[in-house]
Nucleic acid binder design. Structure first.
Lengths: 116, 116
DNA sequence: ACAATATTTAACCACATGGTTAATCATTCA
DNA sequence: TGAATGATTAACCATGTGGTTAAATATTGT
């Protein structure tokens, strides 16, 4: 399997650490949105949003399509897969379910062993 | 359910965006480690590590126990739960399995409707 | 009391980040 | 062609981050 995202956990987590950028991603979950429409809800200038978008694009979290003078952004969530995969390794440290499962597996293994 | 972590997605993702800090967390997954032992593998000064630890502590990702002059750190993964929960909302944008499940659910729903 | 050890804090530096306004580029429309 | 629109880039500023070395703090061992 090839690494299509060509990005790193560094840039992914870094991109996700800003609330404005997370809000932008949330909006894009509903579909393509133009840069202006994307900027409208925020109390910052268009150049500010433009740079947030560049951060997201560099992190591989969005892609653009240019239609005339309007730039449409869309979500590209692949890097999140990698991020979740990293965090998941720690699930057992917070998840009771995980502990319950571990307990169950340990028990069945014992039983398996006793049968031999 | 009370919010025990008292931290934000901002600080969690921000803390996770640094490779040194992620390596520290990885090490702590094996159990408690003193600050010195934690610092040893890295080619940076102790004060540098001390500040990384403060970032992790502020984010709620580690806690400390002081035993004499030795400070022991341990993993506190709860904030990761929140982080994963946020990212999971985008799973369908990268996960084929998710699409397959959505497809399945849609189909069963149809059948359910036809039965009534 | 004093030296050594574990760690943090202080003061500093270089660089990244997020915001601003003004200027520029690209495209549409009159 | 020229004005208006959508978006980016440039230049600048304040603040945050991660590193350093030197100093301070806390604890242990002699």
């Amino acid at each position: 399997m090839v690494n299509h995202s060509a990005t790193s956990l560094d840039s992914t987590f870094s991109a996700l650490s800003d609330p404005t950028r997370r809000a932008i991603l949330a909006r894009l979950a509903e579909g393509e949105v133009s840069v202006s429409d994307l900027a409208a809800p925020f109390a910052v200038s268009l150049p500010a949003i433009s740079r947030q978008l560049r951060v997201l694009e560099t992190a591989g979290l969005i892609a653009r399509r240019k239609d005339g003078r309007v730039h449409h952004c869309r979500l590209k969530a692949e890097p999140m897969r990698e991020a979740v995969a990293w965090i998941e390794r720690y699930r057992r440290f917070w998840d009771e379910q995980f502990e319950a499962l571990a307990e169950y597996l340990k028990r069945t293994e014992e039983e398996e062993k006793n049968r031999c």
